[in-house]
Simulated assay, not measured.
Amino acid sequence: MDNSGVRIDKFLWAVRLFKTRSLAAEACKKGRVTISKLPVKSSRMVKTGDLIDIRVPPITRTYKVLDVAEKRMGAKLTPGFIEDVTPPDQIEMLELARMASSAQRNKGLGRPTKKDRRDIERLQEGDWDF
């Protein structure tokens, strides 16, 4: 494609960072998408070399635009158009969040019993006997 630029909502959808173009536009509207640390509107043009930050709580992912595209592509083609340059500390934060959520109780198990509650309290206080 030519190097003139593409709307950011269209580009984010084309490289499969958002499932629909509407979701990409909504993320821009809510200020979750930035270029050069400035929030952008969905009509902002993206050019090769731009660094795009997308805030996906609890982290902010950073992508470098290698080439622009308007049409949605297969997942195997996206590495030629965009590169994930998210800092390692952000990836580490994501892993910590995943570990914290796995410590929670599984859905569908109902409320903890008294024994479960006591065990949880002992574990949190550090009085767990192995």
Rank of each mutant, 00 (worst) to 15 (best):
N3Q: 09
R72H: 09
A97V: 06
P79I: 09
M73W: 04
P39G: 05
E125N: 02
T34P: 07
I91D: 12
E83T: 00
A27K: 03
T20V: 01
A103K: 15
T86A: 12
R117D: 01
L109W: 09
T78P: 09
L12F: 05
P39C: 10
A97T: 04
S101V: 06
C28L: 04
A25G: 11
L17M: 05
E95H: 11
F130E: 14
S22H: 06
R32Q: 06
K19Y: 00
M45D: 11
L38T: 09
S4Q: 13
L12A: 11
S36H: 14
V68Q: 05
A27G: 02
T60R: 04
K10F: 00
L51K: 13
G49L: 08
K29N: 13
V15M: 07
W128M: 15
M93A: 15
I82K: 01
I52M: 00
I8C: 09
C28P: 03
E92K: 14
K30G: 07
L38S: 14
T113E: 08
A24R: 03
M93D: 13
V33W: 05
R61M: 14
Y63R: 10
G5C: 07
I82L: 15
G126P: 10
R7K: 12
R16Y: 07
K30V: 13
D127A: 07
I59Q: 07
Q104R: 15
R118G: 02
I35Y: 08
N106A: 15
I120G: 14
P112I: 03
G5L: 11
E26V: 04
N3D: 15
V68D: 00
T20L: 02
I52P: 05
A97G: 05
R122S: 09
W13I: 10
R44P: 02
W128F: 10
V40E: 01
T34F: 03
K37R: 14
N3A: 14
I8L: 06
L23R: 01
R61Y: 02
A97N: 14
M93G: 14
L38N: 13
